[in-house]
Computed example of a mutant assay.
Amino acid sequence: MKRKYLLLIVFMSQLIGTSAQTIIAGTFNVRLETAGDVGNLWTDRKLYVANLIRFHGFDVFGTQEGFKNQLDDIQTQLPEYARYGIGRDDGITKGEHSAIFYKKDRFELLKSGDFWLSETPEKPGFGWDAKINRICSWVQLKEKKSGRKFYCFNVHYDHQGMVARRESSKLLLAKIKLIAGDAPVLLTGDFNGNHSTEWYRLIADSGLLRDTFKEVKYPYVNNGTFQNFGRNYSVADIIDHIFVTRHFSVKRWGVLTDSYNGKFPSDHFPVLAEVQLGR
């Protein structure tokens, strides 16, 4: 009898430990590589981008604007991560990516895919009044220890097209329902819109997804998320967001204002949300 009770205690403790496991999720616009960023070139910033990611311990995070060589640089410095994402211009490697990184020792990739933010989402192109191609990449991951499965979607909205941003939210919601069904979903991205914009409200008020910022009592929000390498430092708008479905509870949320030698790893501050799957 004592042996049975001991085994039961061990089993319950393992079960509780598994159920309490949290996921540190992030969204990070890393700023595309361009020769115009004098004083903030990618070759100078890439070490600090990787240092930030490593220190804050993201388990899964979405990046925006990164070219393939930039994503390769991140992965070279952080070999503990695998990634998925394709180029928005040719559906292979050309152009900016909306990539998703995840820790290889914790998660297994089950499925992946992409769609473009346009009237023809199955192929490269831009729609409505957008100025350039915009893409959403997604993965389904399985946590190796618990066996729990969830989807991650990562997106970057157009920076000028008002109609495109509104219609992108409608398309995104429809695609999430179609691809993930009633499964748990994490959505990360640069939405180029703060909490008052119509396209943000379409997501936040959808009944399908909740903004992790609104789910914590004390969000760490000393700054907005777009600071333009310090030139826009005083603006408090949050335009980079992390949403979750009802399957998640949210433990903490914050804008990460890390710097190096008075400079910033990107023109955006990344956002971190610690969440728990299985409320």
Rank of each mutant, 00 (worst) to 15 (best):
D129R: 09
R166N: 09
D190C: 09
D44R: 04
T245A: 11
A50H: 02
F229R: 02
F153I: 11
L15Y: 05
K214R: 15
K2A: 13
K251S: 12
N232S: 07
G87H: 08
H247K: 15
D267V: 12
T76I: 09
V244Y: 01
D158L: 12
W138S: 05
L178W: 13
T22R: 10
V271D: 08
R210T: 09
K177D: 05
V221A: 03
P79M: 03
K145R: 09
N51R: 04
G125Y: 04
I9W: 09
R246A: 08
S168F: 12
V139Y: 02
K142A: 00
A180G: 05
R88Q: 12
G207E: 10
F226C: 13
D73M: 05
F191I: 15
V244F: 00
A20T: 02
F55S: 14
I203D: 00
R201V: 13
V235K: 06
D240P: 14
I179V: 14
Y200E: 06
D72N: 13
L178K: 12
H195D: 15
K104S: 11
P184D: 02
G66H: 01
I92P: 04
A164S: 14
D44G: 03
F67Y: 07
E143V: 04
L6S: 10
Q77C: 01
T76Q: 01
L32Q: 07
E119Y: 07
G85P: 15
W138R: 13
H156G: 10
R210P: 07
I238T: 08
W138T: 11
Y151A: 04
H241K: 08
I179G: 02
G230R: 07
I135M: 01
E215L: 13
F243G: 09
I132L: 15
L272I: 13
G189V: 14
D129I: 12
H241F: 06
S112I: 07
V155H: 07
R54W: 10
V221E: 14
T93P: 07
P79Y: 01
V275G: 06
Y218G: 00
K4G: 01
E122C: 07
K144R: 14
R246Y: 00
D190A: 10
G91N: 12
S169K: 00
F67K: 08
R279P: 11
Q14R: 04
V10E: 14
L8W: 10
H159V: 12
G125L: 05
N222R: 11
F150Y: 09
G278A: 13
L8Y: 10
E215Q: 09
A183H: 05
G262S: 01
L173W: 07
I242F: 08
A204D: 05
E119Q: 11
E143R: 05
H195G: 14
R134E: 11
T245K: 14
G39Q: 08
K131L: 11
I23N: 05
L172S: 05
G278N: 12
D182T: 15
L78G: 06
D89A: 04
N194S: 13
H195A: 15
S112M: 08
T34V: 14
L272F: 02
D89N: 14
G262N: 09
I179Y: 13
V250H: 02
S98G: 10
M1W: 15
D258C: 03
D72L: 11
